[in-house]
Design a protein around this nucleic acid. Structure first.
Length: 129
RNA sequence: GAACUGAAACGGACGGUUGCGCGAUAUUGCGCCGAAAGGUAUUAUCGUGAGGAAAGUCCGUGCUUCACAGGGCGGGAUAGCUGAUAACAUCAGCCAGAGGUGACUCUCGGGAACAGUGCAACAGAAAAUUACCGCCAGAAACAAGCAACUCUCCAAUUCAAGCUUGGGGUUCGCUGGUAAGGAUGAAAACGCGAGGUAAGAGCUCACGACACGCUAUGGUAACAUAGGGUGGGUGUAAACCCUAUCCGAAGCAACACCGCAUACGAGAAUUUUUAUUUGCCCGAUAAGCGCUAUGCGCAUUCUCGUGGGUGGCACGCAUUUUGCGGAGCGUUCUGGUGACAGAGCGCAAAGAUAGAUGACCGUCGAUUACAGAACACGGCUUAUAGUUUCAGUUCUUUA
RNA sequence: CGGGGUGUGGCGCAGUUGGUAGCGCGCGACGUUUGGGACGUCGAUGCCGCAGGUUCGAACCCUGUCACUCCGA
């Protein structure tokens, strides 16, 4: 599953300000409805709603190679949760890495994320889909 | 065997499952656009995909744009010699100095006795044409006057000496000479001996140390060795400065092309005003879009700028046998002490754009170090677990 | 990518033509007071971010390095 990344800085600050928030052990999850989702769907040839993703890894966590690794693990964890669960579409998802994520494995991230999505009622029921 | 020195290489490997970037292929795979050629995303297969430092951004280049008749001032950089190189503050060899028993290592290594200025706290006599003590020499200690005092001692003459003659001594202060000695200090006017002198002094001499010319020999040169000459106020130029050589500026967010639409900023004009869009959602206290974002903004036209895309950018160009070009990489040979140069052969695909190499499992090995490309290259500096190879030194033991 | 600034007692800051490192607040002791505050007197506290160099001597000069921070495109 390819993800479209969030590029605009104002979307990040909007997600922090207005989005729904869950603080996990390794990540903090922000979810906000994407106003641009319909336009993106039009642009997409398959005409599907997509989620846009933003990863935030601050400079406090470490140097460049450590931050790259944290981003990779976050992305892998999100990929696994998406394949196992049916998530809602058309949202902005911002993941902020916490200090514990440096030594975490992708399974840890996965459990953390599923917990967060359940708490935020982000997982769609099987009947509706 | 131990302790070291120098140079170099590697810096997890293999297999499986599953994912990501880029490239190629898909006759008749599938969706969309298009009249078609074709384009685009997805899927499948194949290929390929971070480092020795990718880092710091400290130098030097290429490349791009701008500026530019010529010269000067100012500013900056470099600093033993010769060579290497596209260039450099880099590299090689050598010289000088310093360190080590040694292999070897280290040195921002021009100029202070061929310009000038500054600074040297405290202490100390003095910190730079010095003169406080000391040492020595000289003058003076008088004249008039006299009862007394007359710097002082001895001797001679004399009846009689403060007064004449001769010799010696003294010095609060004065004049001059001197730099031997003087407790300090990081540093004190070459060291030591002899001569010399009123006292002294490189003032003179012998020996030695140092500096700068000269001659000879060796070397391209820095320089070395020998001879002979001249000379005598220290340190500091990572203080100003002087000398020689070099230097236009900015950077891939450079720059080029496409686009300029619904937005924003600036300027000008028009109008005097709710004006732009409707697939979904929403219905003016809204939606949409933009921004410095719980808020704020939104008229029309023209010009300029910003936001967007592509290239720059990953060997290039022409062509499809291959050829040419590039500071490209590997290897062999030749030349050179070496840096390196020349020739032959072979190899060439990281190119992302919120930024691609990961996750899980097994075996070996180990307890995995420092660490992630952002236009490219040559160096430097800094970080770095561990492993291996080559060359060499010292000590010990055995033969 | 380019350019600048800062680092000094517990905290906030001075101090750089190189010569024994200070101020305010805070801290401790004593005095004053019935007691506390205020006030007064005295005192302690520093590898001047780190490493190397120049110099007789470095917080200051030079080189490297680390951290924080600001500005421009």
């Amino acid at each position: 599953m390819k993800h479209i990344a969030i590029g605009e800085n104002h979307l990040y600050s909007k997600a922090y300000a207005k989005g729904e928030k869950f603080v996990g052990r390794f990540v903090v999850v922000y979810i906000l409805k994407d106003f641009k989702a319909t336009r993106l769907m039009n642009a997409n040839p398959e005409k599907k709603y997509l989620n846009r993703i933003g990863l935030t890894v601050s400079k406090k966590l470490g140097k460049a190679h450590i931050r790259n690794r944290v981003k990779r693990i976050l992305r892998e964890g999100l990929r696994q949760t998406e394949t196992e669960n049916n998530l809602k579409k058309g949202y902005l998802i911002v993941l902020v890495a916490r200090a514990g994520a440096i030594d975490a494995k992708s399974d840890d991230i996965k459990t953390d994320l599923t917990r967060a999505f359940k708490a935020l009622k982000f997982i769609r029921d099987e009947k509706n889909s």
